[in-house]
Design a protein around this nucleic acid. Sequence first.
DNA 1: TTTAAGTTTAACCGTTTGGTTAGTACAATA
DNA 2: TATTGTACTAACCAAACGGTTAAACTTAAA
Lengths: 205, 205
Amino acid sequence: MKQEDKIETEQLILEAAKKVFIEKGYAGARMQAIADEAQINKAMLHYYYRSKEALFSKILDSTVAIMAKQILPVLSGKGTVMEKVELLVGNYIDTITENPHIPMFVLNELAQDQVNFQEKMVAQMQNDDVFSKFMMQIMAEQKQGLLLPVAPHHFMLTVMSLIIFPFIAKPIFTGVMNIPEFMYMQMMQERKQIVIEIIKKSFVK
Amino acid sequence: MKQEDKIETEQLILEAAKKVFIEKGYAGARMQAIADEAQINKAMLHYYYRSKEALFSKILDSTVAIMAKQILPVLSGKGTVMEKVELLVGNYIDTITENPHIPMFVLNELAQDQVNFQEKMVAQMQNDDVFSKFMMQIMAEQKQGLLLPVAPHHFMLTVMSLIIFPFIAKPIFTGVMNIPEFMYMQMMQERKQIVIEIIKKSFVK
DNA sequence: TTTAAGTTTAACCGTTTGGTTAGTACAATA
DNA sequence: TATTGTACTAACCAAACGGTTAAACTTAAA
């Protein structure tokens, strides 16, 4: 049927584009490669999504949304800083294990900023100033004596480093240091506990 | 004079190529942009370095060499694990502060691996199995009771995360969270102490 | 059964890309 | 001074690129 075919094709294109863009980056991605991946004609890409930029923009939006909907509710929810961090670590590692290319993709495009990506991130992330409020909570718990008096910026940067970087560094382990895939995956699971312990020892009184 | 001009031009091209490649990545870099940056004719690039790939390869080699000569001597030198880590943290943060795009560049090209980059890293890094030996040292100090019994892989991954990621995340802070450049630079200097403290609290008995 | 609207295709287009070429300018050599 | 080798340039080329077009096909409604 017509309507269903259309929706199928649209979805097919999105998935193919996601794969190619995330693997190759914006500059390295080829419209023909996306068409091949989706097993459709190249003209269809422009029929459904006007241009390469427009298609890329869609992928970027949905990718950021995946992460935002994973992170923002936790940060703005109830619980102590450490309870939130524990949730974050688990959630994030599980989500990224399923889409391991996302962090590299986001950070790379953010660094090169070819498609006014920053504004989109700002729009998604500064919703209700979730980050500012979380930093306020950190400072509050520091005054209460629950957390050590380390600058909130450094606290957040540390948490981010510990959970995001291992996925960016995957090729170093599997490629350069020759650690097999399954062992790397196992490490990522072990990370959950290790990261939480590191943060507790470093920032909790 | 002829000879001097040649050396000057060669160097000019290398510096221009380094800038453009590191900022834009291999796929995003344009030979014309490199020529413009070096204020020379585009044909000169091919006169001195046969192709885009060849030129890129040169840049990649020298970039990896910069990092390797910063890291390998420390790891294979004398001193306890923690003494080595303290040296590494300081050296690395200072080196990268001067070339802030290097980590993103290396990790991105490693992930996309368009130019058999992995082999080069392996060749540079597995010199004398420096990493294996360092991991052995970690295990030895754990048996001595100097370090807590955490898997050496996780120890190294943690150290790498804490010192490399902050530079990759720069656009998040300056762009998305709107933290001014000088404040970010100040954070990177403060990091030296903070990272060392985190590692001590997390891994030293 | 006709019609109109939406979907898909092949073939094509203009531009940009990495790369080449034929030739110029000039310094060193003999 | 004639010659030779090297640094450099403008002009060009074929291929790859993102994007368009016009026509064919499919389907649902009139």
